[in-house]
Amino acid sequence: MKSKTLILAAAAGLAAGAPLLAQAGPKEDLKAFREYYMKRFPGVPLDEFANGVYAIDAGMRAEWEQMEEFPPYELGLDIGKAEFYKKFKNGKSLADCFPDAEKGIKQNYPYWDPKRKEVITLELAINECRKANGEKPYKWKKGKLAAVSAYIGYLSRGKRINVVVPEDDPDALAWYERGKRFFYAKRGQLNFSCADCHVANPGRRIRANLLSPALGQVTHFPAYRKKWEAKGSGALAGFGTIQRRYTGCNKQVRAKPFKAQSVEYRSLEYFHTYMSNGLPINAPGVRM
């Protein structure tokens, strides 16, 4: 008899809890996400999280600031700028597809397109513009695409991320939820989720590498990484999009990476960027 009562009480508790869970939408997620980091790193102001690990490690920050005095991405950014204004065969240019770029637009990407019922990233929009104008799309994740996107990011510096998840649109919510699941799900032979490193362990080290907080990671992408620079050649070698970084992270945990601009990575980018809403764009950021 007693055990029956307990079960009933538990069921009632579940019933009471379930609607609450269902109500926890993107806005509640964002609030909890932000508060978690503010508590974890007391004294670090919200905007500082846009600087990644350099917000939480004074020694590395000094080194980084020195690097920023002669930014290694400057030459590549000029190439990105030239690509942005370069005339297509039809006389138009990327600049015609993004008329507000000079005012700053990066903060609005990725966005939900209600007609197409999918999430559109800045890189996808750039390549779709090229295709629509009869030009060959750029190769994904690095090179010219990353440089143009980094240039658009550069023009958007200081603008605050403003990704919108329309909460009355179940399709948009489904993309958001898919991205959230990706972020928290363990994957790969090594069994790591994004959250294992960047929510549970930011500020700690994997070997000599300091793990960055997930809050603010997207602000400085496309980024310029010394690691990528060393692997390639030329002024564009160091550039990579956020999805290039996802690919690298997935490989590191021995998971098969998804294709660039796949539904999986676009969903992840949607959730991941939404979690940094309100933080200032500072792309391209120099990282190790």
């Binding site: 362990n201 700690r204 080290r205 994997i206 070997r207 000599a208 590498n209 793990l211």
Partner: peptide
């Protein structure tokens, strides 16, 4: 671990 260099601390 004793004897190892540059350990992580997770």
């Amino acid at each position: 671990i004793a004897g190892g260099t540059l350990p992580g601390n997770i």
